[in-house]
Computed example of a mutant assay.
Amino acid sequence: MGGIAGVAALGTAGFVQDDVTNVGMVYATGGLGDNSFNDMAHQGVQNAADEYDVAFTNAEPGTPSEVANLQQRFAQSSSPDYDLLCCIGFVQQEPLRRNAERFPDQRFMVVDTTVDADNVASYTFREQEGSFQVGHMAGLLTQMEFSAGAGETNDDAVVGFVGGREVPLIEKFEAGYKAGVAHADEDIEVRTAYAGAWNDPAQGQEIALSMYNEGADVVYHAAGGTGSGVFQAAQEVGRFAIGVDADQSESLPEYADVILASMVKRVDRAVFRSIESVVDDEFDGATNVLGLERDGVAAVYGAELGDAIPESVTESLAASREAIVAGEIEVPTETSEL
């Protein structure tokens, strides 16, 4: 079950102080400890607490049905009176639309969706752009004889994608990745599967093992905590993987010997910026879109394997990044556009 767990950024743990900027955090289902999306949001509020007089309280919904109640509990609180509620994940959208209207004096921010209200700052990302970059890399490497760390490529030009749940947001990751692979070579095969869960490493491992056994050299995941199973599978068979949201070669260092790169999504910056706007009394209920150009997403090479990636590949990725930013490459957001 989900619930509210008090975390004081200042003073004694478990006590939120009224003389600081108080922030409520409602995370995406899947919870903290995913070493990915939720943990990046948590890093953002921690960074704000380090920089400013900020105290925060975490709430982790166990199911989507708990989100509305958690939002309401924060908004109704008077001890403390929360200066900002951060709503993490697309599942927050519908409850937040209702709660933003019900509590017009409460400031909210939301990640991965938009709510058109003066008291809601929305932050979305061009995940397809960063996914294009890692797809481009995977497509180039699968055509090469390449070995590094615990992995090596085989003779098949095959790569894979593992999604968490099959929703429009994750389709942006898939579409961008496939477009990037095709940019390297349209004849490369891309295997795709969805785990149906955000926190099921065993399922992620089973899906990825099937892909590797069918010739995949590299598997990219956009599956939250499920993705650690992809890394386990990569180590088991001696192939490669690509992380998501955080630099997972750093957040999951035990898998750094198979993680070529991560498609980092700066959720931490979105959370930090929204809190900073409240601290500076500059909060604006607007939509902020972060892509490659604003460093909202990026292909970050793995801490252990990055130096082994051939210069021809890194130069090609630098060129495709420049072309995307310049508008010369238009990256699709839906697989139907491929």
Rank of each mutant, 00 (worst) to 15 (best):
residue 58 N to A: 07
residue 126 R to W: 08
residue 317 L to M: 13
residue 42 H to A: 15
residue 34 D to S: 09
residue 312 S to D: 15
residue 198 W to A: 13
residue 67 V to F: 03
residue 71 Q to C: 12
residue 229 G to C: 14
residue 117 A to Y: 01
residue 44 G to Y: 02
residue 328 E to N: 07
residue 336 S to D: 13
residue 79 S to R: 13
residue 35 N to H: 09
residue 122 S to Y: 03
residue 330 E to H: 09
residue 260 L to K: 05
residue 305 L to S: 09
residue 176 G to Q: 08
residue 127 E to F: 07
residue 286 A to D: 15
residue 92 Q to R: 14
residue 126 R to G: 10
residue 202 A to N: 09
residue 175 A to G: 10
residue 106 Q to R: 10
residue 67 V to L: 13
residue 164 G to I: 04
residue 38 N to H: 01
residue 79 S to N: 15
residue 73 R to F: 00
residue 337 E to Q: 10
residue 1 M to L: 12
residue 328 E to M: 10
residue 163 G to S: 08
residue 267 V to L: 08
residue 144 M to I: 01
residue 259 I to D: 05
residue 64 P to G: 09
residue 183 H to P: 00
residue 334 E to N: 08
residue 256 A to H: 05
residue 270 A to V: 07
residue 153 T to E: 07
residue 273 R to W: 01
residue 20 V to R: 15
residue 215 G to L: 10
residue 232 Q to L: 11
residue 185 D to T: 00
residue 154 N to Q: 11
residue 123 Y to L: 07
residue 94 E to T: 06
residue 188 I to C: 02
residue 317 L to D: 01
residue 242 I to W: 07
residue 87 C to D: 14
residue 63 T to D: 14
residue 173 F to M: 11
residue 63 T to S: 15
residue 75 A to I: 00
residue 192 T to K: 09
residue 326 A to Y: 00
residue 128 Q to D: 12
residue 60 E to C: 10
residue 157 A to S: 12
residue 62 G to W: 07
residue 184 A to G: 06
residue 74 F to H: 08
residue 333 T to V: 04
residue 147 S to V: 01
residue 261 A to G: 08
residue 283 F to Q: 06
residue 271 V to H: 13
residue 328 E to R: 12
residue 325 V to T: 15
residue 48 A to D: 14
residue 114 T to H: 03
residue 60 E to K: 13
residue 36 S to N: 11
residue 266 R to K: 05
residue 201 P to D: 04
residue 227 G to L: 03
residue 70 L to V: 11
residue 49 A to C: 09
residue 194 Y to S: 02
residue 148 A to D: 01
residue 196 G to F: 00
residue 131 S to E: 06
residue 214 E to C: 06
residue 128 Q to H: 10
residue 302 G to V: 04
residue 219 V to G: 14
residue 254 E to C: 04
residue 238 G to V: 00
residue 46 Q to E: 15
residue 197 A to H: 06
residue 10 L to V: 12
residue 5 A to L: 11
residue 140 L to S: 03
residue 208 A to L: 07
residue 235 Q to K: 09
residue 265 K to W: 02
residue 20 V to M: 14
residue 133 Q to M: 11
residue 327 G to N: 06
residue 273 R to L: 11
residue 148 A to Y: 00
residue 126 R to C: 12
residue 157 A to Q: 12
residue 307 D to R: 02
residue 319 A to H: 15
residue 298 A to L: 04
residue 323 A to C: 08
residue 145 E to C: 05
residue 86 C to K: 02
residue 141 L to R: 01
residue 312 S to T: 09
residue 197 A to Y: 02
residue 256 A to W: 01
residue 196 G to E: 09
residue 77 S to V: 03
residue 269 R to Y: 01
residue 33 G to I: 00
residue 48 A to H: 09
residue 338 L to G: 15
residue 79 S to K: 11
residue 298 A to M: 11
residue 74 F to Y: 14
residue 319 A to C: 14
residue 218 V to G: 15
residue 263 M to Q: 15
residue 287 T to M: 05
residue 61 P to D: 13
residue 56 F to E: 04
residue 117 A to S: 09
residue 167 V to L: 13
residue 239 R to E: 05
residue 153 T to S: 08
residue 101 E to Y: 10
residue 323 A to R: 14
residue 92 Q to F: 06
residue 274 S to V: 00
residue 24 G to L: 03
residue 273 R to E: 13
residue 288 N to T: 12
residue 183 H to L: 03
residue 28 A to T: 14
residue 31 G to N: 13
residue 149 G to E: 06
